[in-house]
Amino acid sequence: MKREKGDERLSLFIRRAIAYLVLSILTFLCLFFFYCLLVNSTRSHPEISKGFSFIPGKSFFSNLKNVLQNENLPVLHGIWNSFFIATVSAVSSVYIATLTAYGIYAYDFKMKKAAYMFILMVMMIPTQVTTLGFIQVITKMKLLDTFVPLVTYKMVNPVVFYFMISYMESNLALEIVESSRIDGAGEFRTFNQIVMPIMKPAVAVELIFTFVESWNNYFMPSLVIKTATKKTLPILIAQLRSADFLKFDMGQVYMLVFIAIIPVAIVYLCLSKFIIRGVTEGSVKG
């Protein structure tokens, strides 16, 4: 009996050791590439071409200055365009999704079930499938090469809707809505001033997800935007890739990747608890 317990302890110890070993390898894998990025974004082109080093250089600010002043790459425009589009896209899509979820959750009407089923059905249609028609529609509306289509094509987001309605089912009591009505508040006022504050945690999580999704999006902007100063960061990165790579200042290449990745990574690290909880909650109900 005693020996069996000892065996069990040993096997537990071994399993724990294997688990930590695998986790360490994965952590190394995930962080190593970012470490390379950090190091190389602080080194000048001659230093980088001499060979790899684990020690950061001193050229961070000169790389930053060079890439921001590069005449062929409107990086400052790119940062602003990406930021602007992602913000408008995140705010509008989360607001509309919450509005729609509330409409279905709080009211009884004939088409309620049909509307709900419809939204669930269209959830899985990939946006790429409708792109051809989308480009034709926005061309007819004279919206090609503007930011409008980049905001509208994700403005109705069934995935966000589904997250919101699931959150309402477990966190929003309709009695609160009733009492607000008795107090004489209109329906929209109830929604904006009573319901939205209750939805805050869900709204925050979905704002982050939709912002990141839009910030990272490459497919649609590359088809819609033509003017150089309207380009977003992913387009600029792809453009850098198609430039003659060997002639390029590698310090600038790493710096541009740094600009595209690091701000999002920092925000993620600060909010990771909420984000991971959001993914967990979304998956339990999905």
């Binding site: 995930c30 850098l240 290449v253 990747v257 990745i261 990771s272 991971i276 993914v279």
Partner: peptide
């Protein structure tokens, strides 16, 4: 560990590919 393994998911795929290319 959860924070670290989820990190690559929020990274811009285009820039991640560019980084790998370099």
């Amino acid at each position: 560990f959860k924070t670290v393994i989820y990190l690559p998911n929020v990274i811009m795929a285009a820039s991640f590919a560019m980084l790998f290319f370099a």
